[in-house]
Simulated assay, not measured.
Amino acid sequence: MSGNGVVAETERLSLREATDADAAFMFALLNDPDYLRFIGDRNIHSIADAASYIATRYRAGYAEHGFGLWLVEENATGATIGVSGLVRREGLDAPDIGYAFLPAYRGQGYALEAARAVLEIGRSRFRLPRVLAITNPDNAVPHRLLLGLGFRQNGTVTLGENAETLRIYEIRFPEDRQ
């Protein structure tokens, strides 16, 4: 990993580790109405809450697992536009891929481009045999994206304190993950 926290680059995007300086972006993303509806309320009510969330959720994941959700920047503008990465979640037996983008950057292929980079990191750098994904059954967009990436739907799973039933997907990587 480079000194600036960049973990991957694609034609249009850079994925990097979150820092305290990203608190305003994180506040906006975590309070986006679609984020709240489809992913959940993280109780982020201030920039200070967002900074704490970055420390306890994002940087803690990097330290514990070597991966987590990374910030996605648009190379052309340097704008932080979303998050994408791998998460170790209670109740799942493998890491799952996640992503979320600000409304202005949806529908432009950024999620697919970032997810491909994340899967490659999981396969080659972390040598994961498989990656899971979970989605809210009411949200059709990630369903199409995940199938397009090669995931297969694998039933449902109930996770979290609210015992929410979610779709679960899986992608397996070939044994030779060189």
Score class of each variant (00 low, 15 high):
148 G>Y: 00
7 V>S: 01
24 A>L: 03
97 I>S: 04
155 G>H: 15
83 V>D: 13
87 V>N: 09
5 G>V: 04
22 D>F: 01
10 T>R: 03
23 A>G: 07
37 R>S: 10
175 E>P: 13
40 G>Q: 03
9 E>H: 01
5 G>S: 02
98 G>L: 02
21 A>T: 03
127 R>T: 09
19 T>N: 04
82 G>F: 00
17 E>I: 07
76 A>T: 12
5 G>Y: 01
131 V>L: 09
29 L>K: 00
143 H>K: 11
115 A>C: 12
158 T>K: 09
166 L>D: 05
70 W>T: 07
116 R>L: 08
79 A>F: 06
163 A>N: 15
153 Q>K: 13
165 T>G: 10
77 T>M: 04
128 L>C: 11
162 N>F: 07
108 Q>L: 15
89 R>K: 14
38 F>D: 08
44 I>K: 00
69 L>F: 12
93 D>A: 13
70 W>I: 04
164 E>Q: 15
11 E>K: 10
90 E>D: 15
43 N>L: 12
113 E>N: 04
60 A>C: 06
175 E>M: 06
123 R>I: 08
130 R>A: 11
77 T>S: 14
95 P>M: 02
163 A>M: 09
161 E>K: 02
24 A>I: 04
145 L>S: 05
19 T>A: 15
96 D>R: 06
62 Y>E: 09
63 A>M: 03
92 L>F: 05
90 E>T: 14
101 F>Q: 01
39 I>Y: 03
138 D>N: 12
170 E>C: 15
160 G>R: 07
143 H>G: 10
161 E>Y: 03
69 L>A: 10
9 E>K: 14
102 L>M: 08
66 G>A: 06
38 F>G: 04
177 R>P: 07
103 P>L: 00
42 R>K: 14
121 I>A: 04
12 R>N: 14
109 G>Y: 11
49 D>T: 04
137 P>I: 03
169 Y>P: 09
55 A>G: 12
115 A>R: 03
23 A>M: 05
4 N>V: 06
178 Q>A: 10
